[in-house]
Design a protein around this nucleic acid. Structure first.
Lengths: 223, 223
DNA sequence: CCCCCAAGATGACATTTTGTCAATTATTAC
DNA sequence: GTAATAATTGACAAAATGTCATCTTGGGGG
């Protein structure tokens, strides 16, 4: 620990299986099951106790596997946290994807996606506020462009491009901002918007409406 | 460690002097100097290595004080991190305050504040991305309403109220959203906006313009 | 069905990190 | 200058992290 070897927490967006030689051997069922239990336990504990308050020990115990097994799957607590955050980000992505209604106005589509986020957040309390975070706090080594928030921003950027292609925007604009930039703004705003809603106990529908309206305006769409 | 005593990381927004009996005795000059050195070292290391990669040991050594001194000032690494984050938040507050030009339009004022944030961020690389973070990741015990981002959101809410009082907004609105809500959105958007600017090397003036324009729109002001 | 063996899991142990406190040094009040 | 108090220190104790020799499991071949 604290040795100066270049650490390898960057294997995040893909599999996170710690070792996995170049041999394309499929990970066995048994191995995958251990990993699944560990990640489930990690999720519970990171949400309940935070990063600081959670020990690899506790994760193994809750997962019902031996202590050493933890280190077969993750190099350390940080790698485990990043795996958790990425898993949550993917889950959120699929969940909101399923909320898309293809043939509607951008306003309605936007509202649907945000409703999806809020619904996911209600169904999985604490997950987003723990996972959808700037992982810079924890480490500066991670490949920044594959952090969960960064990936989610890209999803939004894609959506915005699609909307623009469909020509549904106001046209009196000379300043089409970079979709990726807008994506970042949206992600930041949603993250804080959810935090606000949670902290001050805002009713879901009001929260969805307010976030939708503000974002719609910031993108210069029709409200 | 991991004992079940109720831990006390909540003394954050105020002094963070770990003990400080009820006697209103002023902290001695010597004590304050130790604390200052510790916080300076903590800032350097948290930015350089992240939370995970920084040990209390390292902070004491870099600060040039004995190892035990660290624990005289902070209960643990988490308390130290929160003190750092709060200090940075206050610094940012003062810095942007100084950027306010009283007799100008909201648009100009908004731009000035954002320019202040960007300037601060350039002058103090890494500080905001480390400090202006959702501290939920690290701990769930902190009194949420006094987290750095929460406090910054309140500053923004005050500003928005002032602007509204001055009657500079569009009036064709039936939906004046809660200023505190807008404050949160702004803080989230700025945080991610800065991350974007840093990650993709956006020129400062363009970044300031883009953030300003988007936020102005989201608040339904004149662009 | 049973034997074999390699992937996987385990937990005792070694290492590293965190936290405490009796002893020491600096500061302040008189 | 001296006594009383505040602050610091680092050796040591407690706890967490990480390793690895050994054991277990499950699936393929006979």
């Amino acid at each position: 620990m604290q040795t100066d070897k270049m650490s390898d927490h960057g294997d995040v967006a893909t599999t996170d299986l710690k070792d996995k030689k170049k041999t394309g051997a499929a990970p066995s069922k048994r191995r995958m099951e251990s990993r699944r239990k560990l990640l489930a336990a990690a999720r519970t504990l990171f949400i309940e106790k935070g990063y600081h308050g959670t020990r690899p020990q506790d994760i193994s115990k809750l997962a019902g596997v031996g202590h050493g097994t933890f280190y077969l799957h993750f190099t350390d607590k940080l790698a485990c946290f990043l795996a958790f955050a990425n898993e949550a980000c993917d889950e959120l992505g699929s969940f909101t994807q399923a909320h898309m209604k293809p043939n509607s106005t951008p306003m309605e589509q936007l509202r649907e996606v945000i409703a999806g986020v809020v619904e996911y957040s209600n169904a999985n309390p604490g997950v987003l506020s723990a996972a959808l975070t700037n992982t810079n706090v924890l480490t500066v080594e991670e490949v920044k462009t594959s952090s969960p928030m960064e990936r989610w921003s890209k999803n939004w950027a894609d959506l915005i491009v699609r909307w623009r292609d469909e020509g549904v925007w106001n046209e009196d604009q000379d300043d089409d901002a970079d979709p990726l930039f807008i994506g970042h703004l949206i992600v930041g705003a949603i993250g804080q918007g959810l935090a606000y809603g949670y902290l001050y106990n805002i009713e879901s529908n009001k929260l969805i409406d307010d976030i939708t309206r503000s974002l719609m305006r910031s993108m210069n769409g029709e409200v």
